[in-house]
Amino acid sequence: MLRELRTTQYQFTRPFTIDSSATEQAFDLAPTPLEIVLKNVA
């Protein structure tokens, strides 16, 4: 497990950004606006 830390350490030292544009385009998806998510959770 410690060996893996060398290759994943960037996740803890830099901002973690995910680009979902390829998935959105391939599956015709769109993210749910935060306001709607918060209404459904509260």
Rank of each mutant, 00 (worst) to 15 (best):
E35A: 11
E24G: 00
F12Y: 13
F12D: 06
A42P: 00
T8N: 11
E35F: 05
A22F: 01
E24L: 04
K39W: 01
Y10F: 11
V41A: 03
T13I: 05
F27S: 02
L38Y: 02
N40Y: 03
E4H: 10
Q9V: 14
D28V: 02
Q25K: 14
E4T: 13
L38R: 11
A42S: 12
S20R: 07
A42C: 02
E35K: 07
I36Y: 08
P15V: 02
R6H: 09
S20V: 14
Q9H: 15
Y10A: 14
I18N: 03
T13K: 08
L34C: 02
D19W: 05
P31H: 11
L38C: 07
K39Y: 03
I18Y: 02
R14D: 09
L38P: 03
Q25I: 06
T32I: 15
I36S: 14
L2W: 07
A30D: 04
R14C: 07
A26T: 13
A22Y: 02
L2E: 05
T32N: 05
S21N: 10
L34M: 12
L29A: 02
S20H: 12
Y10Q: 11
Q25Y: 02
Q9K: 15
T13F: 09
L34E: 06
P31M: 12
F27G: 09
T23K: 14
L38M: 09
P33S: 02
M1H: 14
T23V: 10
F27L: 15
V37K: 11
T32H: 11
R14Y: 04
N40Q: 07
T17A: 09
T7Y: 04
R6N: 13
S20C: 13
T32K: 09
A22K: 12
A26D: 00
F16R: 10
V37L: 15
T32R: 10
S20P: 08
Y10S: 06
P15L: 01
Q9F: 12
F16G: 01
P31R: 12
F12G: 04
M1D: 12
L38S: 04
F27Y: 09
S20I: 15
Q25E: 12
L29W: 14
L38I: 04
